[in-house]
Every structure is written in C-alpha cells, then in structure tokens.
C-alpha cells in the first residue's frame, strides 16, 4: 500500500479501483466499435475476410457507384457550414448584445436556447412540415434550407459553449476601456470581444458540425437527403460501405470534440464557473 493510499480520507477511489472500473467499462464500450471494424473486412456471409470493401472505395468507378452517398455527404457539409453561419450571424451577436446591453434578458435568452431539449426534433418536425412547405415556395427546395431547422437543433449546445466563454471574460471592463479610448461599437465587437471569444466560438462551431453530421430525424421525415439518411439507404444494398462511412464520421466527430476538450482545458478561468 502506498503512502498516498494510506491517507485517503475523501471520496476518491484507490488507483486500482479506478483502473478496474475505467478498464472494464471502457473495454465493453469498445466492443461495438471493434465489431464495426471487423464487419468491414467480412466477405459477405462466406466467413472469411477481404479488404475489397475498403479498396473498392478507392477504385476508379467508386465515384460512380457511390454517387448518391457522395452527394449526400456534400449536402451534409453544406448544411453544417450554413448552420455554423446561422450560429455566428444570428446567435453570437445576440448573445453579446444581451450580455452588454440587456442583462435582464439573459435568463429569457437562456430559456429560449434550451427549449429545443424539451421540444425534441421528432416533435418539432411535425410542425416543421407545414413551415417548410412555405419555405420551399419562397427559397426553393434545395437542401441547404434545412439548416434553418438545424440552427434550432444546435441552439442548446452552441449557447452553452459561447456563454461559458462570455462569463469567463470581463466583457464590461474590456468594452468600457475600449470606449474610453474612443472605439466605436463595431470596433469593440470586432477587435476586442471576438478575439477574446475565439474559444467559445470555435467550440460552438465544432459541436454544431458534429450535431449536423449526425442528424437523421428531421432530414428523414422531411424527405431530404443528408449523410445519415443516405447511409441508411446504402446499408440496404451495401452494408459494408455504410459501416465504413459511419466509422469515418465517428472518427471525425471524436477529433472535433477532442479539439473542443483541449480548447476548454486551455482556459483555466472557465473552470471556475
């Protein structure tokens, strides 16, 4: 028994208990991921293994064979970009404005931004169907219009990411100092606040991208093609490729969220709130 263990008085587990718990649960959670990887090397039901599902993706006619899937990925990337745009153009300035000018509206804004948790996508989509029949008439039926709905879906996540950053910097002091030195409202926003909010804005953008790339409910029930609806369709005829793309999306999301984690860890002041 180490000296460290002898003086344990609080809630902390011993190093052995920690390793056991994290090791066992971690291993169990790895099983489905391993099963997915194993599956992509299976040769149909023959019971042996092949790399053809992976190599097929890089063959010459891959672009033609999986045209629908690539188109859907493009759609999802456009949707992710427009959704991030909505967060940056509509949500961010509103949050800064409320923080600086209307502190009493802060609770209201927070309440609005967490409504999408209580009104989940499957409920929202019932009312979005009639709204989108109008949207299609005004803006046309192209896929990017779906981003208006996704902007709502990501509100709780984006709000939390930006707000924790806003709370961690002395907005009032910074903007008053800048105003005293003669800066206008726009200068304060662009040159003082935005650079200080970089972490929160990046985190909000990444989490929005991760959410949009994984979105299925709204696209499926409004009959739009995005990555997830296409994956489900492809899986009927070529489950191996569907699983390969699912793995890729999972890896991408992990990298994005790992970056968010590092961003958060790099700002010690955030942890106080």
């Amino acid at each position: 028994m180490s000296a460290n263990q002898a003086v344990r008085i609080g809630a902390e587990p011993s190093a052995l208990a920690r390793r056991l718990i994290l090791g066992i649960i971690g291993a169990i959670f790895l099983i489905p991921v391993i099963a997915m990887i194993e599956f992509t090397f299976r040769n149909g039901l023959a019971g042996d293994y092949t790399t053809s599902h992976w190599t097929g993706l890089f063959s010459e006619d891959s672009a033609r064979t999986y045209r629908g899937l690539y188109q859907a990925i493009e759609n999802s990337l456009v949707l992710a970009a427009v959704t991030v745009g909505i967060v940056l153009v509509l949500l961010l300035p509103t949050m800064v404005l409320v923080h600086m000018q209307f502190p009493r509206l802060k609770r209201t804004l927070e309440f609005i931004c967490i409504i999408p948790i209580t009104v989940p996508a499957i409920v929202l989509v019932v009312g979005l169907a009639p709204v989108y029949s109008v949207v299609v008439q005004v803006l046309g039926g192209s896929t990017w219009t779906l981003a208006f709905a996704y902007g709502i879906t990501v509100l709780p996540y984006a709000y939390r990411a930006i707000q924790s950053n806003l709370d961690a910097i002395p907005v009032k002091t910074l903007s008053e100092a800048a105003s005293t030195l003669g800066a206008g409202w726009m200068t304060v926003l662009w040159k003082i606040l935005l650079p200080n909010l970089r972490r929160g804005v990046l985190a909000a953008s990444f989490i929005s991208i991760a959410v949009v790339l994984g979105e299925f409910t709204i696209a499926s029930l409004l009959n739009r093609r995005n990555l997830q609806t296409a994956l489900l369709q492809v899986s009927q005829s070529d489950p191996w490729v569907a699983v390969i793309f699912a793995l890729a999306a999972l890896a991408l999301a992990f990298v994005l969220l790992l970056i968010i984690g590092r961003l958060g860890a790099a700002s010690p002041s955030r942890r106080k709130s």
């Binding site: 929202l124 009312g127 208006f148």
Partner: peptide
C-alpha cells in the same frame, strides 16, 4: 419562425 411556430403548429 423556426422554433415557436413549428411547436405551436405541432
């Protein structure tokens, strides 16, 4: 338009 209206419509 995209949160209140759909919720009410639903």
């Amino acid at each position: 338009i995209f949160l209140a209206l759909p919720t009410i419509l639903a």
